[in-house]
Amino acid sequence: MKMASIFVTTGATVTFKRLIEITLDSKFISHVQNLGYTKLIVQYGSQPDGETLFKSLLEKLDIKSSLVDNYITGTTLYGFQISGFPFTNDVKSIMESSDLIISHAGTGSILDSLRLQKPLIVVINTNLMNNHQLEIANELENSNHLIKSSSEISDLLNKIDKIQITTLVSLPKPDFSVIDNILQEI
């Protein structure tokens, strides 16, 4: 059996509660376990409400958790492992070892995932006012670099099914000679 893992990131500053709620849902977990995933890692953000929410959702799933290497970790009755942590300076190594990334629409998280060429689903936070994050997600979805989802659990599950059979296009590497030329010319 493959050990496939999903990484969920809500961004470090503002807690995207809805994303934590829909991924720590029994419907979500049984769905992804059926697809062959065995592990879920959640970055719930540095705000205290993120950790509180994460812990209460684990309780709701009847999971006894303990603190292992700064991760709050527990396992479901069916052997699905869930871990969570607030923030790391080395998010890339976690992304590197993940097989699917479900992220908020922050530019940093999107770029980190795409530069590592990981399958990426971006969940849109409709609660954010003046939502230009939606623009970048739209644009990158149009060019097939990622798949976008609403924050409804049914939509997210559809998109997880879709990403299993979709070949995403990798993001072209940036041309760093551009900034060098600008600096030389100025």
Binding site: G106, T107, G108, L111, I179, D180, L183
Partner: peptide
């Protein structure tokens, strides 16, 4: 040369741009 680092996402993008530069 002076570089301004702003908040979160802006700093992230600036560091990405500069880290690829051979001139900086």
């Amino acid at each position: 040369v002076m570089v301004l680092l702003g908040s979160g996402g802006h700093t992230g993008e600036m560091i990405r741009i500069l880290s690829g530069s051979n001139t900086i």
